[in-house]
Write a protein that binds this DNA or RNA. Sequence first.
DNA 1: AGCAGTCCCGTAAACGTTTACGAAGAAGCG
DNA 2: CGCTTCTTCGTAAACGTTTACGGGACTGCT
Lengths: 343, 343
Amino acid sequence: MNIHDIARRLNISIGTISRALNDRAGVSAKTRQRVLDAAKRYGYSPNQSGRSLRRGATGMIGFMVIPNRDRTTKGEAFFMTIFDGLQSVLAAHGLDLVIHYCGADQDPETHVQRIVERRMVDGLIISQTNRSDPRIDYLIEKKLPFIAFGRSDTRRAHTWTDLDFEGVAEQSIDLLYRLGHRRIAIATAANELNFGYLYLEACRASLARHGIVLTDDLIFREPLTEAGGYSLGGRLLALRDRPTAVSLVQNTLTLGLYQRLSDAGVVPGHDLSIIGFDQSPNGDFLRPSLTQFRLSLTELGEWLGCQIIALIEARRAGRQIRHAHKIWPLQIEPGESAQPPAR
Amino acid sequence: MNIHDIARRLNISIGTISRALNDRAGVSAKTRQRVLDAAKRYGYSPNQSGRSLRRGATGMIGFMVIPNRDRTTKGEAFFMTIFDGLQSVLAAHGLDLVIHYCGADQDPETHVQRIVERRMVDGLIISQTNRSDPRIDYLIEKKLPFIAFGRSDTRRAHTWTDLDFEGVAEQSIDLLYRLGHRRIAIATAANELNFGYLYLEACRASLARHGIVLTDDLIFREPLTEAGGYSLGGRLLALRDRPTAVSLVQNTLTLGLYQRLSDAGVVPGHDLSIIGFDQSPNGDFLRPSLTQFRLSLTELGEWLGCQIIALIEARRAGRQIRHAHKIWPLQIEPGESAQPPAR
DNA sequence: AGCAGTCCCGTAAACGTTTACGAAGAAGCG
DNA sequence: CGCTTCTTCGTAAACGTTTACGGGACTGCT
C-alpha cells in the first residue's frame, strides 16, 4: 500500500495526496479530509525510506550509550529519566528518539562513524565523553548536528552540556571541612573519563583552598559499580592512617561501600563520613541516609531536545549556529552520612 | 558524495560500484579493489535511505523498552546485559540494534504502530508484555517479524521467550516450606503485567501443593522500586498476624525492604525470611546476603538475536516459519536471608 | 467580453540506491 | 578462423516519496 494505491483509489494525483498528508498549502479542505480518511481506512502511512531519501532527513535523533567495562552505565533511572524529557520534546516536533547501544566489544568511534555514514539520524547526542574524545572531532568534521553530554578537552566549537562536577566537588569538600574533616579520600572515575578528571581536580583545588594537599594515597579509582564500592571500602579500611571522610563521584558505589563498612562494623557518618553524588533511589534507602545531590534530569533531557532541534533548524535555514554550553548545578541534600569526625 | 560521484571519479559505471561494495559477483578483483580504495579515500558509504528504499529493508532491529510509572524499568544491568548479547549477534550479520524508548506519556501500542508504519525496522523485540497485549496482535496482523520477551494470553502463533517465573516461584515456596515457613507473603507486580500474574499464580499453586491456601491479605503489589520495597516492608510489619517469609517477584524491591526492616529492628532471615528473584548487583551487597536466582542474560540476548534473524531469513526465503518458545530456567543461590523461622 | 488574479490540482523530475538485462570482449575449442 | 561460453561491465528501470512548475477552472474587475 503506497501513495499510488491511495491516489488510484481516490482518483486523485499523488502530489495532492502528499500535500494533504503533510499539511501543505494548495489542497482544498474537502479533498484533504478525503485523503486523511482514506489513509486511515486503508492503514496507509508514508514509507519512511522514500520520504527520507527525498527529504534528505530521517526524522530520527540518536542517543549513543556506551556501557563501561562493568556493564553498568549508570543508575538506570539516570538515562531513563533523561530519555523521558528528551522524548517528549522530540515527539512534539515529529521526531523519533532512537538509542544506539554501543556493544561492549565495539569501539565507540567506529560505532559513531557507522551511524553518521549510513545517515541514520538527523542529530546525535553522545554521552560519557572521554577527556580526549575523537568522536567530537569526527562529528564536527562530518558536520552532523550533535550535542556532547559531557565535556572534553577539545577546543573546537560545539554544543555541550554537563553536570557541575566542580560545584559538587567544592560543596562536598567545603561541607566536610566545615564539619572538621581534614583527611578526606576522593573516589573518582578512570582518568580518561572526563568527569572523573574534572571531579578529582576540583576536589584537589577545593582542598588546596583550605590548605590541604591531596596526596595520591587518598585518591581511589574503582569500577563504578556496587562491587567497586565494596572494594573501595576494603581499601579505605586497610589504610593505616584512615581518612575520616570520603567523597564519591557516583552513587553506584554507595551500596557496596556501605556493606563493606557494615561488615567491618564501621558506621557511615560516625566512623567515616560519606558524600554521594547524583541522587539515586539508593541514597534514600540507605541507613544512615546518604548526603547527596539532587538534579532535575527531566529538565536536562528537555534541554537536549530543544538544543538539538535548534541546531537542526539553524542548519536547514542556513543560519550561523550559536553553540550553547550549559552546566547543570546540583543541590546538596544533607543526610546522616556526613557528620563531624569522631573523637 | 554519492555513488555517481565515485563512478565519475573512477570512470566506472554505478552498477559496478554497487556490485563491488556489496560483494556481488560480476566484477573483477582489480576493479573491486579500485572501488574499495576510492570509497575509503573519498569517505564514501552508501546512503541508507536509498538503499533501504530499493532493498525494502532497513537493516535495523528494534528493541522496545517501556518505562513503568516509576521510571525504573528494571535493574539497568538487566537490559544492558541483554543488549550486549543481542548486539553482538546482530553485528555479525550486518544489522544494527536500535532501542525505541517509549516515553512515559506515550501509549505503547501507538508507539509500536508508529515503528511499524514508518517501516523503521526489519524486526522488533518487545518487552514487558501485558497479560493481554494488543501489540502482539497488531504485529501479527502487520506481519512484521518480532519476538515477545514475555508471555501473554494470546493464543495466536508467534515467537516468544520468558523467564521461568513458575520455576522460581516453586523453588522459592518449596525452600521456604522446607525451612519451616507456613505463613508466606508474596510480593508481585500489577496483575496486568503478565509476569506478575504468572508469579502469583505459580506461588499459589506451589503453596496449595503443600496444603496452604494463599489468602489475599498475603498478596502485595507495590511499584517495583526501592520506594515500593520500603512501603512493602511497612505493610508487612503492620500485619497483626505477621508472615515469617516473603517472596519477591523482582529485586528492585529489596533495598527498600531491607531498610524498612532495619528501621524497625527486624533482621532479614531471622525475623523475616526473604527470597529475591533475578540476580542484581544489589543482592550481593546486602547484609544479610539475599537468597536469589541467577541467569545468563547475555545468552538470552544472543538467543533473541539468532531468532529474529531466523525469522527475517525465513520471511525472505518465503519459508514457513517455526515459532520458537523458550523459557529460561533460573538457578537458586542460597543466601542468608532465607532461614528457618524464629521462635 | 476580456483580462488578471486565485485556488486547486496533475505532471514529472528528482533523491541514491540495487539489480535484471544485454552487450562487448576475452577465452576456449574445433 | 568461426563458433560458443564465460567474464566483466554499462544501461536503465525500479523503490516511494516530495515539490517545482504549469495549467485549468473559477472569481472579480474593468
